[in-house]
């Protein structure tokens, strides 16, 4: 019985780590611009698919990963420059709709540039499962969780210790005031898109060996990431991580103990309940540190 629960926990944590990374991407852009970027899931897809194809061309894995993250970052910046910035006078709703349009566009583009098939990325370090407490975990899951934690720590450091990070925090807190003290908020906006695209791409690459990737994986994972954000509290980075992990674990335990048919429903019911009692999400309370 214990081994079964541990097994559910492992699969929940693996997916949860990925949801958390996607949710962090949402949070970064939201804080810098108050826009919910619905193209966030497409960064996940671009990361995974680019790596698959570069590896297919015979590139070594580390180089393929680096290039894929770079490509996604570039696309994220292009999205900001070409689609979001020209419309910066528009209302937030308009901007959100623009990102939905961008996500449809990117998905279509992926279909043309690559193909409509599913692809698997070889795992980073073999696929011999590791046994713990009677349950098994794939090395790739450890990669996903480990890199997820590293990225989170790196982000924390960036915001706490670097001037640029502080500038982003300032912009998140009060855009006007930030501008008045000489922060280039347009640059900050661009940076937020670049960072969250890179985070999304990293999530896509980490998960591709486990869950496969295709031109349309972004929709679902984007939605889950968004759900995690809502659960954790919009605008809070700790909330994004907590929301992502909780969502992943809820899904795994829901599928294991209740019924796999209602796996998605189970996660969304939890979100509904949380939002009913805590409309700002678990950690979205009074505006403290928002990143």
């Amino acid at each position: 019985m214990l081994s079964q629960a541990v097994q559910f926990l492992f699969s929940g944590l693996t997916l949860g780590a990925i949801y958390a990374l996607v949710a962090l991407g949402f949070t970064l852009i939201f804080n810098a611009s108050h826009v919910i970027n619905f193209a966030q899931g497409e960064f996940v897809m671009i990361g995974g698919m680019t790596t698959v194809f570069l590896v297919g061309f015979g590139l070594p894995m580390p180089m393929a990963i680096a290039l894929a993250v770079a490509a996604a970052t570039g696309i994220g910046m292009a999205l900001e420059k070409l689609a979001v910035e020209p419309a910066r006078q528009a209302s937030i709703t308009t901007l959100i709709i623009i990102t939905i349009g961008a996500s449809i566009f990117l998905r279509g583009l992926a279909q043309l540039v690559w193909d409509k098939k599913l692809h698997a990325l070889p795992p980073f370090t073999g696929d011999a499962p590791i046994g713990i407490l009677g349950a098994t975990i794939l090395p790739q899951s450890l990669w996903a969780m480990g890199v997820g934690v590293l990225l989170l720590l790196a982000l924390r450091w960036f915001f706490a210790r670097t001037l640029l990070g502080q500038a982003m925090l300032a912009t998140a807190n009060n855009r006007m005031a930030a501008q008045l003290v000489g922060i280039n908020v347009r640059r900050i906006l661009l940076l937020s898109f670049a960072l969250s695209a890179a985070l999304g791409a990293a999530a896509g690459i980490l998960i591709a060996p486990i869950t496969l990737t295709a031109y349309d994986v972004g929709t679902n994972i984007g939605l889950k990431g968004f759900a995690a954000v809502m659960l954790g509290g919009l605008g809070s980075s700790a909330g994004a991580v907590l929301g992502g992990l909780l969502l992943g674990i809820a899904e795994a335990f829901g599928a294991g103990y209740v019924s796999s048919a209602y796996k998605d429903a189970f996660a969304f019911v939890i979100i509904m309940l949380v939002l009913l009692w805590m409309p700002r999400g678990l950690l979205g309370g009074a505006a403290a540190e928002r990143v």
Binding site: F8, S11, F253, G256, S260
Partner: peptide, 20 residues
């Protein structure tokens, strides 16, 4: 007799149930 959703990407929970 277990099932999974169309977009699911992890079935270890269901399979662990079958195994038991």
């Amino acid at each position: 007799d277990e099932s999974y959703g169309a977009q699911d990407n992890d079935m270890t929970a269901q399979l662990a149930k079958i195994r038991n």
